[in-house]
Nucleic acid binder design. Structure first.
Length: 112
RNA sequence: AGGGGUAGGCGGGUGACCGCGGGUCUACGACCCGAGGAAAGUCCGGGCAUCAACGGGCAGGAUGGUCCCUAACGGGGACUGGGGGCAACCUUAAGGAAAGUGCAACAGAAAGUAUACCGCCCCGUCUUGACGGGGCAAGGGUGAAAAGGUGAGGUAAGAGCUCACCAGUCCCGUGGCAACACGGGAGCUCGGCAAACCCCAUCCGAUGCAAGGCCAAAAAGGGGGCUGCCAGAAAUGGCAGCGAGGAUUGCCCAUCCUUUAACCCGGGUAGGCCGCAAGAGGUUCGGGACAACUUGAACCCAUAGAGAAAUGGUCACCGUACCGUCCCGGUCACGGCCGAACGGGAGACAGAACCCGGCUUACAACCUACCCCUUUUU
RNA sequence: UGGGAGAUCGUUCAACGGCAGGACAACGGACUCUGACUCCGUGAAUAGGGGUUCAAAUCCCUUUCUCCCAG
């Protein structure tokens, strides 16, 4: 297992347009959408609305999610675009709580 | 000891492992660099870039005590006047109301070339407390504001009618670069609001890096007008005018460009490259200035740069204020206080997007300097 | 990123610087056997802070929030 997250694994501007997403799993704070891509590579995109908080809060949330992806890459479906939407930000942004909730999210995802 | 004022500083540090963005090189790796004092709000100013034109006028906008600083500013400094505070100190959009237009609800007699409700005084009449004529604006009453204020003289009653002091206006003198201050004199007067229109003085071209420059795929699409005269057999060419289109900020004036030739012309999207990153820097010392600032020398820094956006995660240690425990020592007015030991203990506001100078707003904990007031002790 | 507009009862609209007013909704009463309709009445608001003025929803400054436009 390689613990990296390079530019090629990111979803870019063009990847969002005209894509039909399928709902993967949902928890109180996160929503995972997946889409079978043609590149044969696992890719990740994170979206947070501006209403959820200021720039500092949104940056911190995004970094926590990306760190989780980097360390638990095998849990995400391969050869798919993964779009993780942050519905709202928890009161306290801690690594332990985020990790726990994302594990639940992917457990639901992989059982179906 | 308590309370207050002013000016600042700082915005955790060290290490390990796993990662991210950019750059360089001997390139599957190594090395170096990688958020803030406000990066924020976008309220001002400047650099830079483009517009053939940074032409004129009107309109529009901004500023508003004086002098100075600055690249510039609506920023800063010092001083003057007004206001607040016992004081340290704070605060102030602070030009013009005899250039003009306007506004002042309600109340009140009257709200601006003053006026007379209750009143006061004189004269006349008669039914002796009313009516008529005249004088007055001191007192009452209304209002946010009532035509200088207080006291004395004066008078039929009164009034700057006269006098003293105070306030205001104008003139003169002295001091100051000036705003103004101080002193003297005159006549006694002619309110408030310009963050109402306005007048005066000073300043402002417009648009903004999604500016702008270069390269430019595929597919589609646009333009090459009309009249007159001349030349020519004709095709067509030349000149002039009109029109059309384009360019400039809201308007007007003046002005400019294009109107080619059967294949050219210009526009221009996706995408790519450039713009795109070492200076109006800081500290110390010396000179000038009350200061903002400026000047000379030395030293220190200063090279983040994406293009949907990089600085993260985990762990360990250090440790200030503070909190808790223990009971060891000291002190005691027996409430506590101080020192030591042990345990806990890093938290605020907040994320660069062309770059700087300010302003404004947000901000946990800690630290520094100076000053004022009150109380107690000596 | 740049430019512009706005914030008034629970909702939607008014208000030359001079007592914040309607409509719908809510509540109470009358009418009715009961309800609807109708009539009468009641409560409730100028986004926060500061300034100018005798007096501010209105004028000025500042903060917060919302909406629209360009690309």
């Amino acid at each position: 297992m390689v613990y990296t997250f390079t530019k090629e694994e990111r979803l870019n501007k063009g990847d969002f347009r005209g894509t039909r997403w399928k709902k993967g799993a949902e928890t109180s704070h996160f929503l995972l959408l997946v889409h079978n891509n043609k590149e044969g590579r696992r890719k990740l995109g994170i979206t947070i609305r501006k209403k959820t908080g200021g720039a500092v809060v949104r940056n911190r949330m995004r970094r926590l999610v990306r760190e989780f992806y980097r360390l638990n890459k095998g849990l995400f479906p391969d050869r798919h675009d993964n779009l993780l939407k942050v519905k709202r930000v928890p009161e306290k942004l801690s690594w332990a709580a985020t990790e726990k909730e994302l594990h639940e999210l992917l457990h639901v995802m992989n059982t179906f």
